[in-house]
Design a binder for these strands. Structure first.
Length: 574
RNA sequence: GCGGCGGUCGUCUAGCCUGGACUAGGACGCCGGCCUGCCACGCCGGAGAUCCCGGGUUCAAAUCCCGGCCGCCGCACCA
């Protein structure tokens, strides 16, 4: 019996939504083409994403586009190079795979992290390490890199990678956008773009791709003054926090945002805000509340950069709960790493409400005396004095009467500590980041799966009407000259009114309804014999199959209400 | 990557075990014509298949053998 996943895949291929890429050459696992309807639907999903996640905060959510090819240094800074490569050995007998470094550490106690595959292989041979399960011989150690690698320019060693997420393009641009925002936080950088991950074994159609589209926001804020998201504290959200999961809880609990924050299940208000928006987006894609929830990742399975991560899961028939978005509290990890690796100032600045008068102790010295006494060494001593702790100097001078710097004793009088008053207007800090990140193709898939219904043994793609790639179809009831002519006029009218509208005159009317139901066309406009009498047509609802009679001149208005405003058909007529 | 199963017109499939009359059959879909007054269900005709790819065995391979690719399921992996 065909399950939903194969029905979706079958429909997708047959009716132009998507299919395996490069298929005339046998296909390559993990790559898919989007067909005309799939591309159109994806565009609409992205549009809806922008409307839901960007538009409400349009003054502070800014969209950027950064390159896909990313230099080595960037991904080294982000931790991906380290975290995306695993040295792997395989048992030649039973085929089990292991992390080579883990295996060696277990067997010998040696610390081997960071060694080359060749060295690891040598160690395995020398120590005669075998498969811990079946005792079989182990293969050579191979480096498995989950990043796609390429070369930038003609020189070897100038390594580039296809980005595994768009986030790094946002982090490296923090300072520029911060300045664009006139140095105000919070703000978010949105990016929608292609990424590549060289999955070991991609399967599950659109749900596990090697190349796909990510839509994400890096939301930067001051951890001491995060600002208030426009958050509905009474809104309900379905959660499975780790605190409950580790006690064996399997089912999510439904709580208000307020409760989730109070209990510490969501550690940050902005996290809560984006999670709520994610839920809203899924609702708009036709996923009901009971078919989605958020699951907190355990500390072990969390990404290397994150201190809290929730996955948004959607029910699928064959694959169970499937992750469609991730919500990570990335803290100051990424920006800090880029400060460290690039040596650039990517700090934000926090102004105090009032400039603070602070008393600062400063080490002072008599440069003239030092010069006379130490000659050329004096410069070095003065440099050192700049960096010593004034408190310490004060203490030494008090206790011993001198302080030792660069191996020289400097007594009170030649060195002393002064207290000065300074005005400080603020301080530098690294912004914190929360990141909602969506896999667009996964959204596409769950949208299709949840829209696909069966009615009287036929497939009906009950997409939310505003998502339908084709909005309406004009059908002459029979292939009769007068009616066909009229139908073409109606098609013209709708096309000119801005609808994406199809036309079909072949075959029986029932067959045509069925054909357009299957690709989710919400409205079928039928021209019949009565049309020739009184200029009215029937409009048929894809889901209920009910029909109403409408004057041709009212048709654009009625369809606009029906499709864009999503009203029930009867309400659109009045 | 391992193991199991599979891959035949656009789709679903018959044929494979037991090699030859397979010029690869059917259904749906598609195209054309007729018919047709509202839900894929009438009639006639037509186009459409590298039998996944490569190699081998054989007089002869869709069919048997080997390798590869792709898909599904399980294991492993999943930053």
């Amino acid at each position: 019996m065909a399950d939903k996943a194969s029905k979706v895949a079958d429909l997708a291929q047959r009716r132009g939504f998507y299919w395996p890429a490069w298929e005339i050459y046998g296909g390559v696992a993990g790559f898919y083409d989007l067909g005309p309807l799939g591309k159109e639907l994806k565009n609409k999903i992205i549009e809806l994403w922008k409307e839901t996640l960007m538009k409400p905060l349009q003054r502070i959510i800014l969209e950027l586009e950064t390159p896909i090819i990313t230099p080595y240094r960037v991904l080294e800074a982000s931790g991906h190079v380290q975290n995306f490569t695993d040295p792997i050995v395989e048992c030649t007998k039973c085929g089990r795979k292991y992390r080579a470094d883990h295996l060696i550490e277990e067997a010998t106690g040696l610390k081997v992290e960071g060694l080359s595959p060749e060295d690891l292989t040598k160690i395995i041979k020398e120590n005669n390490i075998r498969c811990p399960v079946c005792g079989g011989e182990l293969s050579e150690v191979k480096k498995f890199l989950l990043l796609f690698q390429t070369q930038i320019g003609p020189y070897e060693g100038d390594k580039g990678f296809i980005r595994p997420e768009t986030a790094q393009g946002a982090f490296v641009n923090f300072k520029r956008v911060y300045q664009f925002m006139r140095e105000k936080l919070p703000f978010g950088i949105a990016q929608i773009g292609r990424v590549g991950r060289n999955e070991i074994s991609p399967r599950q159609g659109l749900l596990r791709l090697r190349e796909f589209t990510i839509a994400e926001i890096e939301f930067f804020f001051d951890p001491l003054n995060p600002g208030k998201p426009p958050l509905d504290y009474e809104a309900k959200i379905r959660l499975l926090p780790w605190e409950l999961a580790k006690e064996g809880q399997k089912e999510p609990v439904e709580v208000t945002i307020k409760e989730a924050l109070d209990k510490g299940w969501i550690i940050n208000e902005w996290m809560a805000y984006w999670m709520l928006k994610a839920k809203e987006l899924l609702n708009k894609l036709g996923i009901k509340d009971e078919d989605q929830f958020f699951e907190e990742k355990s500390p072990e399975e969390r990404a290397h950069y994150s201190s809290q991560t929730y996955d948004q899961l959607v029910r699928t028939e064959r694959y169970g709960w499937m992750e469609v978005s991730g919500h990570a509290y990335r803290g100051d990890y990424d920006v800090s790493r880029h400060i460290k690796f690039s040596g650039k100032d990517l700090y934000a600045f926090r102004k105090y409400k009032e400039p603070k008068k602070v008393k600062v102790k400063v080490v002072r010295w008599n440069a003239r005396e030092l010069g006379i006494r130490f000659k050329s060494k004096a410069k070095k001593i003065m440099e050192a004095l700049k960096n010593v702790d004034p408190e310490l100097v004060e203490k030494e001078l008090l206790e011993k009467g001198y302080v030792e710097v660069e191996g020289e004793k400097l007594e009170k009088g030649i060195v002393w500590v002064e207290e000065r008053e300074e005005t400080v207007s603020g301080e530098r800090f690294v912004p914190h980041v929360v990141e909602p990140s969506f896999g667009v193709e996964r959204l596409l898939y769950v949208t299709l799966e949840h829209a696909l219904k069966e009615k009287d043994g036929r497939l009906v793609l009950s997409l939310p009407r505003y998502l339908a790639p084709i909005e309406a179809v004009v059908l002459p009831l029979v292939e009769e000259d007068e009616i066909v002519k009229k139908a073409k006029e109606v098609w013209e009218l709708l096309a000119k009114s801005g609808f994406r509208v199809e036309y079909d005159e072949k075959g029986s009317i029932g067959r045509r309804y069925a054909r357009f139901d299957e690709i989710g066309v919400p409205a079928a406009v039928t021209i019949d014999f009565q049309t020739l009498q009184d200029d009215t047509v029937t409009v048929r609802d894809r889901d209920s199959w009910e029909q109403v009679r409408v004057k041709i001149e009212d048709l654009p208005k009625v369809l606009r209400r029906f499709i864009k405003e999503n009203k029930p058909l009867e309400e659109c007529v009045t």
